[in-house]
């Protein structure tokens, strides 16, 4: 049934994404594609892969925002976005087939590709744009939190983390159990003021984002525009006077 689980288990798995350290390199998106196009979600179809009008399925997409506009505090923020494995995921309850479900034991939101009819209604119900349609297979696909990696006993314990987390060179992505108050992710959220995306929608995302830190010395000092700087030294002032005439 696509009802949400009545009794949730002990775990609540998700990611913490650090908007302070993310450098926007797209390695998470690339490694996600690499792992998931060969795992249980395979294939992550690419149409027109080597020509114009490419269309493909990605579970993780990296946006870049300008924040603060023209102010002295203006900054560029790289913003990776994937499924947040919500506690109240309408994408699950709208599913007419039972293909979408939220696991009781760890809260991971998954799709059974053998049941999905490709009606796309779940993508309409997701505020975060996290579900994509695989036009070649005719079913919806989404981030599985690398379910076939995090529980994979054939891998060393250290590798049992989602592909995006394993590959991040800036350590901007953390994986853990939000139900455990002493887990790495819970501590990060507590210490750094982790927040929900679009809390007003009431989906209660499990995964959290960490805000950018203030600049190293607080706010950046505004630089004077180059053309208004007056020349220094007698010779340059004389040249400036001659040329300005």
């Amino acid at each position: 049934m696509t009802d949400l689980p009545l009794e949730r288990g002990a775990k609540s798995l998700g990611l913490v994404i650090d908007l302070d350290t993310c450098v926007g390199c797209h390695a998470c998106a690339t490694n996600c594609k690499e792992w998931n196009t060969s795992g249980i979600s395979a294939p992550l179809t690419d149409v027109n892969a080597y020509q114009a009008e490419q269309r493909g399925v990605w579970f993780n997409r990296v946006f870049t925002y300008e924040v603060g506009g023209q102010s002295a505090n203006a900054r560029t923020v790289h913003f990776p976005k994937n499924c947040l494995h919500c506690e109240k995921p309408d994408c699950v309850t709208v599913c007419p087939t039972g293909a979408s479900y939220k696991r009781a034991e760890d809260g991971v939101v998954l799709i059974d590709h053998n049941k999905c009819i490709g009606c796309k209604l779940c993508s309409w119900a997701c505020p975060y744009g996290a579900r994509e349609y695989d036009e070649d297979v005719g079913v919806m696909k989404k981030c599985t939190l690398c379910i076939d990696k995090i529980y994979n006993e054939n891998l060393p314990q250290a590798d049992r983390v989602p592909a995006c987390v394993a590959t991040c060179p800036a350590k901007a992505r953390h994986f853990g159990d939000f139900a455990d108050p002493e887990s790495n992710v819970s501590q990060l959220v507590r210490e750094r003021g982790g927040f929900d995306l679009m809390p007003e929608t009431g989906y209660r995302p499990t995964s959290k984002y960490l805000p950018p830190r203030a600049g190293r010395n607080g706010a950046l000092t505004a630089l004077a525009p180059v053309e208004t700087q007056s020349p220094t030294g007698a010779f340059l002032r004389w040249v400036d006077r001659i040329l300005t005439r």
Partner: peptide, 28 residues
């Protein structure tokens, strides 16, 4: 509210994730 970055000032998209339109952009 979508990015949670409103506290840092106005938010403007600088670069979208990919050069081509994706499913979300075409559907929504």
């Amino acid at each position: 509210s979508a990015t949670g970055l409103g506290a840092f000032g106005s938010v403007r998209l600088l670069e979208q994730p990919h050069t081509e339109a994706n499913f979300i952009m075409r559907e929504m």
